[in-house]
Simulated scan of single mutants.
Amino acid sequence: MNETYRALAEFAQTWGLVYFVAIFLCVLAYALNPRRKGEFDEAARLPLSED
């Protein structure tokens, strides 16, 4: 039981880190994509617009 838990914990720590780094890089690429600049500029002005 102890060996199984240790192996599972090591697997989760290693691949969990890889998973979250991959997700972070995808979000970063999305946010810094120059094609999205118009969408982000429009969203930034949204609170200032009057209905």
Results as ranks from 00 to 15, higher is better:
1 M>W: 11
1 M>F: 11
1 M>S: 14
1 M>T: 12
3 E>H: 13
3 E>W: 08
3 E>I: 15
3 E>D: 13
4 T>I: 12
5 Y>I: 13
5 Y>C: 12
6 R>D: 14
7 A>G: 14
7 A>H: 01
8 L>R: 06
9 A>E: 09
9 A>G: 07
9 A>R: 15
10 E>Y: 10
10 E>D: 06
11 F>E: 03
12 A>H: 02
13 Q>G: 10
14 T>H: 03
14 T>E: 06
15 W>S: 03
15 W>P: 04
16 G>L: 01
16 G>F: 01
16 G>W: 00
17 L>N: 13
18 V>Y: 07
18 V>R: 15
18 V>N: 06
19 Y>N: 06
19 Y>P: 02
19 Y>R: 13
20 F>H: 10
20 F>N: 11
20 F>K: 07
21 V>M: 06
21 V>R: 03
24 F>S: 03
24 F>P: 09
24 F>Q: 07
25 L>T: 14
25 L>P: 08
27 V>G: 02
28 L>H: 12
28 L>E: 01
28 L>I: 03
28 L>D: 04
29 A>C: 10
29 A>G: 09
29 A>W: 01
30 Y>Q: 07
32 L>A: 09
34 P>E: 01
34 P>W: 06
35 R>T: 06
36 R>W: 10
36 R>P: 03
36 R>G: 09
37 K>I: 05
38 G>N: 10
38 G>E: 08
39 E>W: 14
39 E>F: 15
40 F>P: 00
42 E>I: 03
42 E>P: 00
42 E>Q: 04
42 E>H: 10
42 E>V: 02
42 E>W: 14
43 A>M: 15
43 A>R: 12
44 A>W: 04
45 R>G: 05
45 R>H: 09
45 R>Y: 04
46 L>G: 00
46 L>M: 12
46 L>T: 02
47 P>G: 00
48 L>H: 11
50 E>F: 13
50 E>R: 12
50 E>K: 09
51 D>R: 14
